[in-house]
Each structure stands twice: as structure tokens, then as C-alpha cells.
Design a protein around this nucleic acid. Structure first.
Lengths: 313, 313
DNA sequence: GGGTCCGATGGAACCGGTTCCATCAACGAA
DNA sequence: TTCGTTGATGGAACCGGTTCCATCGGACCC
């Protein structure tokens, strides 16, 4: 297995120059750099991570903290972050942690350069604690002073509600998300506001966990309200609703419009059913970008990015 | 931040002795060891991972290769592996890769101590290639000579079919999984065999991707067969089926029994619907255990573990 | 009592990079 | 022509552990 001295020898330069050439420090003569890169490629040289870490005092590892992997909302975020990490020469490790206590993260903190934090719940204090020791980017939640990227679903939920009301739904139900969820607070407020403006009657049910089973369980309550449209906090809840409605003989969307996400709507061929379209991968990519810039010193902490969320269908 | 020399100085010994004492090599006088450990504790010493890696020639990182994160079958495996990795003092990184080519894995190979490979598809040659350079454990698939752990779903699918036939379903449909899937081949064979023994008529549809949309799309073909029970390859396909059946007014399970997984069956309150119960986390835990033992030299490569899969409901 | 063996310990090399500092050649300016 | 400056490069220290090898003192044996 070739190491840096081998590359240097083949290229006819010293280890120091080889190192500089491969890291693009710009202090090397262009032709020398080319020779070194060619030598590295020919030998199939891959730098030893541990040695680099030791010398640089950086690990090159980023941890993404997610509350669970069982929710399809989080996994695209991970995939997006992973793709970007690879491009930036960083490794991503996934830490499943609900952030209801601080210790597990503290241990991790010594082993990584930074954090991507997906924490829909948990108190501001606990979540902000993660960013205290190492650079961190908050995903789909905002806390003052912390860098974050969120999908602007609040605006989208508002628009969705306006649209449903305009399409002739005088009674609408919003099925809320998990207790203490930051996004749920935003969405509830937006939906309430939109319904009021449009003169529609709104019932808010919840809080509910963002699971399939919760959607099934909430179905009777939804039907009781006599509403003709329901807007669930999460796709998983919407799927549960759709399934339970099917077994009860309620026809969708004739008797009740259920707004989930475009892929579901399209697959089932549902008419008159608007839905919001969150790009989770983009969320992950953006978060990793922000963190990488922060690690390079190109960005100061505190930047807050909002990605627009379209309403489709 | 204290380092090993600090600990050694406080304990009044050399770095060499301090290192031995902290790693429990047994070559140190008991009282000396106690003194060193106490010094380390007092200083709050945490060993530098990079330095240890460099000296030992091991990275302490394991990569789990999965084809996608969008499938709820894989995520519990990751969670289980992650939990076990943490216990063993290893870091887990998730690599999303379909294993349809070799290069991406080759690059990773230098950065990790071993692989957990979840590759339902991909040729034996490509998959085995991952294990060529570093220790690897195959998850939910078997290849001669490679260590592996699989959920014995073939047996479970067979039992399920036998049971459905015994409960009065003369016509059964099996909706197959992705093209080239190892598990799909096992299951198809088991289902065929069981149906034949029981004298039931079996239709095999597929191959189909293991997605929700595929389940929706296959629904008309399922209904055409006139079967009274359907066994889908994956839960996601089953959910698609259930949804599509609901919108078509087919009553489940009266008109058609759809076998998915126990949580779904239970949530919807479906009667007479047996389902298999795969413990994905256990799969991940076991795989990580096998790999850890292999890295420690306690196990030879090639061990094949099969986890039993119960049929419930 | 002298020699041998063994357990405990210390010194120093080593893992494979990065980076500070010194060197050197070439070039422009005086 | 000579000196100062700049850009490219090499030598060597260093990051923080692990581990080989040598040393040393004490116990045991003949």
C-alpha cells in the first residue's frame, strides 16, 4: 500500500512538496503539481486518514443526529447530507438520538468536527447545547444564534389551507404532529391564520406522533368533525388516514380530501388533492454545505436559510 | 487537554507503562496500574483517537453499505448496527450505494476496518468484491465463503402460504420483489413449494421494486387473478396494495386478505390476516457482532447465521 | 554463593501525514 | 555587477499514541 513517500519518490520530489501538491495549497509549481498528482494516481495512493487527522488536529468526520430512522422524513435528509459530505471529503456518521439528554452527544463531540442536528423536539437549551462544543447546523428548526436550514412548510401549509377553502371546503381538519415540535407550532399557526382569513372552520387535532399508526387512530375523530378536507402534519399520518378510511368505506377524495405528498397523490390517482412537496435531500445538502463553509471559516455561525416549499396537484 | 505524557508524569511512570496500564495488557504491576488509572481519571484523560489509529493501524470505523434509505426495511438494520457499534467502541458510517459498480467502495475501503453489506441485488461477484479487501459481513443474503446473517424469511413465507391455504384460500398471489433479489428467489421457491404441497393455486407476479407505488400499480393484476389472499415481497408493496384496494372499494380482508406485517395488521384491526415479523434491528446487531468478532480474530470468515422469523396474527 | 530466569519498567523507534523554517535559484532593481 | 526579493523546494520536527528491545532487580535453583 503506497504512502506519501512512495508518491514523492516516484514524482522525484520531497514528502513536503508532495503533500502540498496533493492538498492544492498553491505553493507548488504547476508542473510539479501535475507530476505529483499523476504519480499518486498511478500508484493508487489514498491518504491515511488517521495520520492526517493526527497532524491536522481535525477528524474529518461529521455526525448527523436524528431522532429515529423509522420516519421517511429524515432519511432523505441523511442521503443528501451524505452525498455532499462525500464531495467535500468528509465522512458522515449517523447518530440516532432523541436529544432528550446531553451525555451521549458529549462523548461523540470529541470524535467529530461538527454536527448536523435534526431535532424536531427537545428543548431549545438541550439542542443548543450540541452546538456549544463544536460547530453545528440545525435542520428543520430555528433557534436564535444557531446556523439553520428549514423547509418553509409553514407558508406551504398556509397556502394549502387557503386553496382548500377556495375550492369549496368550509370545514377543514389539521392533524398536528408530535408534542413540542417546532415545525408543528409554525404549521398550526399558519393553518389557523389561513383558515380564519378564508372564513373556513378549522379543527386542530393532536398532538400526535408522526406515525402511520397515529394516522389510523385519529381517523374516527377526523370523521366526527364532519370536515371535507384534512391536512396531516406528516405523510405517515396521511397514509394511516388513507388506509383507515379505505377499510371504513369512506371514499377519497369524494367524501374527504386527504392531503399527503405528491408521489402518493399521483400513485393513487387522487383528484382535487393539493399537497406540499418537501425536498428532504436538498435540506440535507444545504445543511452540509453550511457546515462545511463554517468549518472552513467562510461563514460565521448564525446564518438562517429557508427553502421554499411548493404546493402541487 | 491532557495527553498520555501528562498522565505518565503524574503517575510517576513512563509513557510506555502508562499506555500498557490503560489498555489492560496485564504486563504492569497491579499497584502501578491503579496509580496510572487514578491519574488518568483525575486529569480527565481521553485518548486521542487519531493517534491510536495511526499507531495501531486500525481506524475503528465500520461502514454499512445500503442500497437506499427510502426503504423501511433497511433503516432498522442500521439502527441495530449503530447501537452495537457504539457498545464496541466503533464508529459506524452509512454509505448509500447500490453495489452496481466497485469503485466507490474501493475508495471507502482504505478508510474503514470492515464492512456490513446490505445488497439485496447486485451480482455475487460484485458483492463478494467488497469483502476481498477488508472483513465484511453480508446482511440478508448469502454467498459461499462469506460471513452472513439472514432473516429466514423463506421459511416464514412458506409457513404463511401453508397457513393461508389451510384457512381456505384456494387461490393465492405472491407479488415478487426487485429483479435479481436473492431473498426474492428464496421466497418465491418457498411459496411455490408450500402452495403445491397444500394444493393451492399460486400466481407469481413480478418482479417489482419494493416500493409503495409498485404495490398500487400491481393491484389490478392481483384482482384479475381472482385470488382471495395476496402475499407481497415487502411491507411497502403491501401498503400500496391496501391503499389501492381501499380506493377501489375492495374490502379487506373480506374480499381479499393482504399479508403485510404485524404492526400494520394490528393498527388496522384486520382479522384472519397472518403476517411475518422480521426483526431488522436484531439483524443489524447480529451482523455487527459477527464483524467485531472477526476483527478481534475470534471468528473465522464464512460463518452463516439464520435468524428465525415468526408468523403472527 | 553464583548463575539463570522472569516480571516490571524505561527508552526510543515508529505509524504517515502536515507544516515551520531554512535553503537556493532566478529575477529585477540599483 | 551585485544585492534584495520572491517563489519553489527540502529537511526535520511534530501530532499522540503503541510496541519492540534493552535493562534491571529479585527470586529461584543448583
Amino acid at each position: 500500500m503506497p504512502d506519501l513517500s512512495d508518491v514523492a519518490a516516484v514524482a522525484g520530489v520531497s514528502k513536503a512538496t508532495a503533500s502540498r501538491a496533493l492538498n492544492g495549497s498553491g505553493l507548488v509549481a504547476p508542473e510539479t503539481a501535475v507530476r505529483v498528482v499523476a504519480a499518486a494516481a498511478r500508484l493508487g495512493y489514498v491518504p491515511n486518514r488517521a495520520a492526517r487527522e493526527l497532524a491536522r488536529g481535525r477528524t474529518g468526520i461529521i455526525a448527523i443526529v436524528v431522532p429515529t430512522l423509522d420516519n421517511t422524513f429524515f432519511t432523505p435528509i441523511i442521503a443528501g447530507a451524505q452525498a455532499r459530505a462525500e464531495e467535500a471529503g468528509l465522512q458522515l456518521t449517523v447518530a440516532v438520538h432523541a436529544l432528550d439528554s446531553a451525555d451521549a452527544v458529549e462523548r461523540l463531540s470529541r470524535q467529530v468536527d461538527g454536527f448536523l442536528v435534526v431535532a424536531p423536539r427537545g428543548t431549545d437549551t438541550l439542542v443548543a447545547g450540541v452546538g456549544a462544543t463544536k460547530p453545528a447546523v440545525l435542520v428543520d428548526r430555528e433557534i436564535d444564534g444557531m446556523t439553520s436550514v428549514v423547509a418553509d412548510t409553514a407558508t406551504a401549509f398556509g397556502a394549502l389551507t387557503t386553496r382548500l377553502a377556495a375550492e369549496g371546503h368550509p370545514r377543514i381538519v389539521y392533524v398536528g404532529g408530535p408534542e413540542g415540535s417546532w415545525q408543528d407550532r409554525q404549521r398550526t399557526a399558519a393553518v389557523r391564520d389561513a383558515a380564519q382569513r378564508a372564513g373556513a372552520e378549522l379543527t386542530v387535532l393532536g398532538p400526535r406522533p408522526a406515525t402511520f399508526v397515529a394516522g389510523v387512530e385519529v381517523t374516527p375523530s377526523v370523521l366526527e368533525t364532519g370536515a371535507t378536507a384534512v391536512v396531516p402534519y406528516a405523510t405517515s399520518i396521511g397514509l394511516g388516514l388513507l388506509l383507515a378510511l379505505g377499510t371504513r368505506g369512506v371514499e377519497v377524495p369524494r367524501d374527504l380530501v386527504v392531503s399527503t405528498e405528491p408521489t402518493v397523490i399521483e400513485a393513487l390517482g387522487l383528484e382535487h388533492t393539493p399537497a406540499i412537496d418537501v425536498d428532504g435531500e436538498e435540506l440535507g445538502r444545504t445543511a452540509m454545505d453550511l457546515l462545511a463553509r463554517q468549518l472552513d471559516g467562510q461563514d460565521e455561525p448564525g446564518r438562517q436559510v429557508r427553502l421554499p416549499v411548493p404546493v402541487r396537484g
